[in-house]
Design a binder for these strands. Sequence first.
DNA 1: TTAGATTAGTGTATAAAATACAATAATTAA
DNA 2: TTAATTATTGTATTTTATACACTAATCTAA
Lengths: 229, 229
Amino acid sequence: MNVIKQFFRSAFSVDSVIFGFDEGDLKVLLIYRGADPYKGTWALPGDLVRLDEDLDDSARRVLNELTGLTNVYMDQIHTFGKVERHPLGRVITVAYYSLVKVSDYKVNASSWAKDVKWHSISSIPKLPFDHNEILEYAKNKLKDKVRHQPIGFELLPKEFTLTDIQHLYESVFEIELDKRNFRKKLLAMGLLIDSGFSQNAVAHRPARLYRFDKKKYQSLIQKGFSFEL
Amino acid sequence: MNVIKQFFRSAFSVDSVIFGFDEGDLKVLLIYRGADPYKGTWALPGDLVRLDEDLDDSARRVLNELTGLTNVYMDQIHTFGKVERHPLGRVITVAYYSLVKVSDYKVNASSWAKDVKWHSISSIPKLPFDHNEILEYAKNKLKDKVRHQPIGFELLPKEFTLTDIQHLYESVFEIELDKRNFRKKLLAMGLLIDSGFSQNAVAHRPARLYRFDKKKYQSLIQKGFSFEL
DNA sequence: TTAGATTAGTGTATAAAATACAATAATTAA
DNA sequence: TTAATTATTGTATTTTATACACTAATCTAA
C-alpha cells in the first residue's frame, strides 16, 4: 500500500475536439487560453478531470461549460501519455471529439478561455501541447466513423438538403463525390424523410429539405442492417 | 499552482488484452492474481504506469515481463475511467491489445502473477474490475481492424496454410466463410508468397505453406492500395 | 495393397454494387 | 424575358460478391 502511493501523483485531463459544419466547411472550436501554461495561444478546450468525476462526464462538462449544450454526440478518440507532454507534471490526456450543430447555440467563453472561435479545418494554427497530433487523430477517427454510422447528421440542422450532406461528407473524406451516385446510395437506405418543404429565398431552384429518420435506423439495425457510405 | 496540486492524486494503469491463435481458436492470455486487490482471480495483465514512463512503453513493458517478447503488434483500445472502478483509489486504465504468435515463446509468470494461461475466447471467466468490458471492447476493435489491415498474420507463425488464416478470420469475425471465395479474395491481393513447402506428417493431403509479403504490402499502400477482407 | 477417411485445391455462372456520365427543372436577379 | 445558379433524375457498363461441388493427395487401418 505504501509503495503504491507513489503512483498517485499524476493527473489526467480531457481534451475535446469539437467539430462543427458551417458554410460547407468542417470547423473545430478552439479556445484562446487565458491562463498558463501556454497563455495566449489557441488550443483545444480541455480540463483536468476531478477526482470524483467519471471520465466521460468530465468531457461532457467541458463541452457544456463552453457551449451550454447537453446531449451531444461524443466519442473517445485516444489517450495521449508521453511523459513530457505537460509542463506542470505528469498529465495524460484522454481525447474526445464531439459533433455539434453550429446553428444551435452561441459559444460562451468560459472561466479558462478568454475567447472561443470556430476554425476551419483547413487553417488550424500551431497548437500547444500535443494538440495538433490529437486533432489529426480526431479527423481520422471521424473519417472512419462517419462512413459506418450515421453520425454525420449530428453536424447538420434538423432539416437539410441532399447537397448539404454531400458537402459534409466531402469535407470529412476530403474527396469529391458524384452527385447522382451519392444520392442514390443515401436514399436507397431509406433513412431520410422528405419534410415536404423546400429552401426559400435562394437565388436558384430551391432544394427539398430532409430529416434523418432515427427511429427507422434503430429498427433497421435491430434487423442486422449496417450503415455504409 | 496550489489549487492544481489537488488533482495530482490519481494514478493510471495499462491493461493488456493479449490475443493468441492456437488450435484454430482465438485465445487471450490471463494471469492469476497473486496480490490484492482481487487476489486469487483470473484477470487481464496490467500494471500501474510509472511516473517517468510513456504510456505505450508501459504497455510494452507489461507484455515483455509476461512473455519476454518485444516488437509485438500493439494497439490502444480505449480508456476506462469510472470513479469507482478501482478499490484503492482513483485509477483510470488505458487498455491495449496485442497480437502474439503462441508458438514463439513460453509464458512466464511475473512478479505480480502467480500463474498465466491462455483462455479460449469462448470460455472467459468473470474477471475483476471492468476487465470483462475491456475484453469486449478489445474483441470489437480487433474485428474492425483485422478487416482493414493485414494484422491477422501477426497471430500466425511465419509460414501458414490458407486454411489457417481462414480459421483465424472465422474466429475473429465469428462467422463461417466460403473457402473458395475467401482464397480468391486473399490471393487476388498478391500479398502471399508461396513458400514452396507443404505441411508434412498430416493424415491427409498436405497444404501449401505461405508467407505474408510485408514489403509488397508497404509498397502497395504507398500507391494507395487498401487492404480489405 | 487397397479402401476409407480426411483435408486441399480449384472455376464458373449469377447477382449485386459501384461507377461513369449530362440533360431538364425551378428559382432569383438583372 | 433572359441569364445565372443550383436541383433533380436514369441508364449502361464495370467491378465485386456470392453460391456452389468435384477431384487430388496424403495417412491409417484392414
